[in-house]
C-alpha cells in the first residue's frame, strides 16, 4: 500500500497529492509516469510524475477530476493509502544540451510541464514558460513557474487573469519577433499540443509533445496506448508507454490520437455519474 502523505486542492477540480513510494521516488525523472489503482476493484490509470523527493521517498501527483477513478482518488485523504502505485514508467524528457527552451503548459498539463521547466532551469538553460488556462479559477502553479522561468506568460481563454487568449498567442508573437529556441516542449490537451506544433512548424524549431493515451499495463504489453507517427513518408506505430510519452510533435497524428482518446467516452461519462451519485448518497 502507498500512503498519502499530503493532499492539497490546487483549484476546485485539480488536486495535488504526495504519495509514499520510495522505489518510484528513487528513480523518477521529469516526463515519466506512474500507474495507480485507488482500491482493490479499481482500474489502472496513468498519471505523469509532477515531482519527487528522493530523501523522503515520496512522489507528487497532480490530477484533474475528470472521471470515476479520479473522483474516487480525490475522496481519499492524508493518511489513507492507494492500492497500487507502479513506476517510474516511460522515457524521461530529454533535456541534455538544451540552452534555451520554451515550455508550454495547458491546464493540468502544467503539472507535468513544471518539473521539466525546473530541471532545465537547474541545468542553466534559459526557460521561457507559457501557461494557459480556461479561466482564473483554474489557474495552478503560477508561483512555481515564475521561480524557474526567465520569462513567464500567463494566459486565460476568457481574459479573467493574465492575458486573454490561448498559449499560441505569445508563441506566435515571439516567433514573429524573430525569437528562437533550441526546442519547444508542449504539454497539455491534445488540441493545444496540435496547435503549438502547427505554430512552431514554420520555424523549424524542434517541438516535443507529451502524449497521455489510454493505457492498461504501462509496460508495452497491451498496445492500447499506440499512436501513429509519420516518419520519412511512412506510418509507424509506437507505444506511448515504452517509446514515449514524449514524441516529436511534427510526426504525431493528433487527429487519430484524439479519436482514440474518445473510445470509451460514453462508458466513462456513465461511470463518473454513477460514482458521483454514490458519493452523494454516502454524504446524505
Amino acid at each position: 500500500m502507498y500512503k498519502i502523505l499530503k493532499k492539497e486542492a490546487l483549484n476546485p477540480t485539480v488536486t495535488k497529492m504526495e504519495i509514499q513510494a520510495p522505489f518510484v521516488a528513487a528513480k523518477a525523472q521529469p516526463g515519466q509516469f506512474v500507474i495507480l489503482r485507488v482500491d482493490e476493484a479499481g482500474e489502472r490509470i496513468p498519471l505523469t510524475v509532477a515531482g519527487y523527493d528522493r530523501e523522503k521517498g515520496s512522489v507528487t501527483i497532480i490530477f484533474q477530476i475528470v472521471g470515476a477513478t479520479t473522483e474516487r482518488l480525490n475522496h481519499l485523504n492524508e493518511g489513507d493509502s492507494l492500492q497500487d502505485f507502479v513506476g517510474p514508467l516511460g522515457v524521461a524528457t530529454r533535456t541534455q544540451g538544451l540552452k534555451k527552451v520554451c515550455v508550454v503548459g495547458g491546464g493540468v498539463g502544467c503539472a507535468i510541464a513544471l518539473p521539466v521547466a525546473k530541471k532545465l532551469h537547474d541545468q542553466g538553460c534559459a526557460v521561457t514558460s507559457i501557461i494557459g488556462f480556461r479561466s482564473k479559477d483554474l489557474l495552478i502553479l503560477e508561483d512555481e513557474f515564475r521561480a524557474c522561468s526567465d520569462v513567464l506568460h500567463v494566459m486565460t481563454d476568457d481574459g479573467s487573469y493574465g492575458r486573454e487568449g490561448n498559449v499560441c498567442v505569445p508563441l506566435n508573437e515571439m516567433f514573429a519577433a524573430g525569437e528562437t529556441f533550441d526546442e519547444v516542449i508542449a504539454i497539455g490537451p491534445l488540441i493545444m499540443m496540435k496547435f503549438v506544433v502547427e505554430a512552431t512548424r514554420p520555424t523549424g524549431i524542434p517541438c516535443v509533445v507529451s502524449m497521455n493515451p489510454i493505457m492498461i499495463d504501462g509496460t508495452g504489453m497491451c498496445g492500447g496506448c499506440r499512436l501513429t507517427l509519420r516518419q520519412d513518408g511512412k506510418s509507424v506505430t509506437k507505444f506511448a508507454c515504452v517509446d514515449g510519452p514524449d514524441f516529436d510533435g511534427y510526426q504525431v497524428d493528433f487527429d487519430e490520437a484524439m479519436s482514440r482518446g474518445a473510445m470509451y467516452r460514453d462508458f466513462e461519462r456513465h461511470a463518473y455519474e454513477e460514482t458521483c451519485n454514490l458519493f452523494k448518497k454516502e454524504a446524505q
Partner: peptide, 10 residues
Amino acid sequence: ETNMVIGKTL
C-alpha cells in the same frame, strides 16, 4: 513483490 517493473523500478 507486485508493482515492480524490473528494468524500470529496479
